[in-house]
Simulated assay, not measured.
Amino acid sequence: MGGYPVIKIENLKHYYTDADGNEVKALDGVSLEIEQGEFVAVIGANGSGKSTLARHLNCLLLPTDGRVEVGGMNTLDEKHMWDIRQQVGMVFQNPDNQIVAAIVEEDVAFGPENIGVPGPEIATRVAKALAAVSMTDYAKHAPHLLSGGQKQRVAIAGIMALEPKCIVLDEPTAMLDPQGRKEIVSTVRSLNKEKDITIVYITHYMTEALAADRVVVMEKGHIRFTGTPRQVFSRVDELEQLGLEAPLAAKVASELRKSGVDMPENIITDEELAQALCQ
């Protein structure tokens, strides 16, 4: 990791008025720093503010109060908006909403064309982006014939071709089957480790957050606690109070400990549970 914050959030508040005229505090004093090259997962029940937080990272939403800085640029400063959006790419739940062309490679080229990247360089970027998400063989395919996981990988390639420093993924596997979910997590992980791209990964699947360097747990517009996956998912009872399921292995280990079985602390993966049970 580079050791400097690529994203710096200070006392961020985001309030809006709902359909009944009530003020909703979607974010109420969130502070967080994310370093270059870090993989941060943000988890929380529905309404915890995690998607609202994601939309602040590339100026889709602006603070009611507090500040968000990306690469040292304040999101409230209009002259930086374009630069911030080039530094931070967003991937959403439904890949169909992000795919615009009839051929995969044309779709991936769409972003670079829009920002005026010269033709020969676009071809290089498209090839690199498709290779990075293991979709080179599908360059000439029609996106609508792809599986959900493949479409989402094309959407990620489209962001990659813009060469952002950071990719924010807002529940990118919500519409995918388990196989598609696996593909996306492994794609994101390799982009982070091999390309040093900072990842902010919003999810309600706890097992996906196991791939992160750090997990941020949100509730009702606040950060409740944060730590490594091992630190966070060992807190099984606290997670349940927040309406979150700890990974199954952590839960089983916790129940066994409560019933008097001698189990090591901090078990969070199936492999660790199996090993402890065999002993």
Rank of each mutant, 00 (worst) to 15 (best):
F39N: 04
V40S: 05
I122V: 15
T203Y: 08
A211R: 02
G21V: 07
R125V: 12
A157L: 06
S147N: 10
G66C: 11
E106P: 01
L239N: 03
M218V: 05
S48F: 06
G29N: 07
L53M: 11
M218W: 10
E194A: 15
L76N: 14
L277N: 02
E10N: 15
D262F: 00
E10R: 15
A102H: 06
V100Y: 03
A19Y: 09
G221V: 03
A41C: 03
L53F: 13
A101P: 01
R181L: 01
V70Y: 02
S234W: 00
K193M: 13
K251V: 02
V42H: 00
L244P: 01
E35K: 13
I7F: 02
G158E: 10
T269S: 12
E194Y: 08
H14I: 04
L242P: 03
D83R: 10
P120L: 12
A132C: 08
M90V: 07
T124S: 14
K128Y: 08
L76R: 15
R224I: 13
K182P: 02
R55W: 10
L239M: 09
S190P: 03
D237L: 11
D28A: 09
E208N: 11
V100E: 07
G21R: 11
G89C: 02
L210H: 09
I7G: 01
N266Y: 06
S48D: 06
G49D: 08
A250F: 04
L256G: 01
I9C: 04
A157H: 03
L248V: 07
T207D: 15
K251C: 01
